[in-house]
Nucleic acid binder design. Structure first.
Lengths: 342, 342
DNA sequence: ATGAAAGCGCTAACAC
DNA sequence: GTGTTAGCGCTTTCAT
């Protein structure tokens, strides 16, 4: 039923290995036989069986993607489709397929990764999120299996290839943007401290304050589970302070959307009363009311480069680990405005 | 280097075939040897090579997902992570993995599907979007390859398993919701007419108007490329009419977010001046300002059932095609309110 | 209840 | 430049 390499070989009057070489476009095959073989392939509607190929060649031509727990709200973040788009674009260029592993909890995800690696389902892995004390990173690292992380790994930072933004600088610039607008009471609403990204951004924020000689206030800092409640708890608490902030630095556009909502409910106007700025610059940053000033972290590029880097280290086993920093850019929109004294 | 079934067999003092049977948990193997073999597996850290298994058993334990063109803005819609979460949950239950095929354009995507099918990379395919005159549907259908579509196929509607909402009814109810609030000038902002979903919803909208004896107005109907501009063009045009609508039925939450933005720019207040309702009820419907009245189409379930149905037809080749309708529910939020005469 | 052996469809030495 | 052959690691008759 299935047409195999032998059928093609027979029809073309050559040996199976020759057909195999034609598939691989081996230069040592004469053009005339190539043509002959290709005709036979077309005629028979031949398609290589990938499993057989993988088995024999010990390579799958597939990359594994590890997403955060699907129980996690983060899963719904438009960040993911966009990184995947980047990864997919690069993978496609090199003829690689994507294999996606998910799971309801940390453990399931971990098992999925082990299965991918040991089961030889993929040639390399991209971690789309990582946190402190990540068992997957540990496992992959000691296994010497090719992998790249999107974001900054907590451990082995310079032993693991990763592609990240300069979150420290980005947060600094974003905070400075507010300071330049005259704001001094600037709150920070972050995600889980468990994420390295959060820490980096918090440090950048602190640095910007220090540079401007604005005292750091512990009560202006909030860490909320990403997206849960959309940061409304933080906003409530912050606005109830004796000296409420006049500007908010928010970790993520989706969260900022929630912040915008809560503020509006409380009758606080953005940007007239307070400014709100955030990170990621996903599509909704543009669509929200008011449109959000947001740091474009170039998500597509994050994914594209991660795939690129991974593919390199699959090709060349001894490629040293690499840190790739994707440039960011503050996109100025309506949600931030000069501080107005009341 | 790699530990194979033979290593396990040797250590356990049995034949390779026995080990294979233990993996498959064949009931004809005595408990004592099972135990013995499993110990050996653990001891050696054995993991079956999936490619070898797939090759021999002619089954990959993987499902293929086909997304819309990644050049397409639709790709960024939070709809996708959520369907995938549903699919992944079911797939996981049955020990299936997910392959994702993407591509920059229709053609690349089509080729990817062919490769998945002919290359035996997957046992079945789920189409996450389909349009009229879909070549992929055609191909899969004539190949007799197991597949399911999320949404309604344009052709072969009752010969292809698919899971969908009752978009006709949902749109009807949503429109009626507005009519019940006293609205009569109700606009419809849809996506590409190329999507079957759009047509279904438009028909439902028309039906609701008819039932209420409200005349259908051509100039209240707009079809915009999903998300492009976020429907702002439509809003501009509609509000410039002599008799502008007092309510908007929008195809999608993201688009509705854009509509909200454009209205706010024009100084039109929601829901005081006009009401806006939409579909999908993704997270941002709740986070937007004002929170959106939206039809919860149960995206997770859409994916979960699609996987379920596909897995069934993989197991049982003769399973007749099935249409599965996922229930919807209007979630009432702040963006819709009674019509106020001016 | 278990073993022996023949593939699954392909690649990659090694020949010539 | 092309053919022969031996696997890749597993499943699955067919024996016993």
């Amino acid at each position: 039923m299935t047409v195999t390499i032998r059928d093609v070989a027979k029809l073309a009057g050559v040996a199976p290995s020759t057909v195999s070489r034609v598939i691989a476009n081996n230069p040592r095959i004469s053009d005339s036989t190539k043509k002959k073989v290709r005709q036979a392939m077309d005629y028979l509607g031949y398609h290589p069986n990938i499993n057989a190929r993988s088995l024999a060649a010990r390579s799958t031509q597939a990359l594994g993607l590890v997403m955060p727990s699907s129980a996690n709200k983060a899963f719904q973040n438009p960040f993911f489709p966009e990184v995947i788009r980047g990864i997919s674009t690069k993978a496609h260029e090199k003829g690689f397929a994507l294999y996606i592993s998910t799971g309801m909890n940390e453990e399931e995800i971990f098992d999925g990764v082990v299965e991918m690696v040991q089961g030889r389902r993929v040639d390399g892995i991209i971690l789309l999120s990582t946190s402190m004390d990540d068992k997957i990173v540990e496992y992959l690292y000691v296994s010497h299996f090719p992998f790249t992380v999107v974001g900054k790994p907590y451990k082995y930072e310079d032993k693991i290839s990763h592609v990240d933004n300069d979150n420290y600088r980005a947060a600094g610039e974003l905070t400075k943007h507010l300071i330049d607008l005259g704001h001094e009471r600037i709150a920070f609403i972050g995600g889980s401290l468990n994420l390295v990204m959060t820490t980096d951004r918090l440090l950048g924020y602190e640095k910007a304050l220090r540079n401007a000689e604005i005292p750091f206030r512990e009560d202006y800092i909030f860490h909320e589970e990403f997206l849960k409640e959309g940061g409304s708890g933080a906003v409530e608490a912050l606005m109830a302070l004796e000296e409420p902030p006049t500007a908010f630095v928010v970790m993520d556009d989706l969260m900022a959307l929630g912040v915008l909502g809560t503020l509006s409910e409380k009758g606080v106007s953005v940007p007239d009363d307070v400014s709100v700025v955030s990170f990621n610059n996903v599509m909704l940053a543009e669509l929200s009311t008011p449109p959000l000033t947001s740091v474009d972290i170039n998500i597509f590029q994050l994914g594209y480069k991660a795939a690129d880097c991974l593919l390199d280290s699959i090709e060349n086993e001894n490629k040293p680990p690499e840190r790739i920093i994707i440039p960011h850019k503050i996109i100025n929109r309506m949600s931030s405005a000069p501080y107005k004294k009341k």
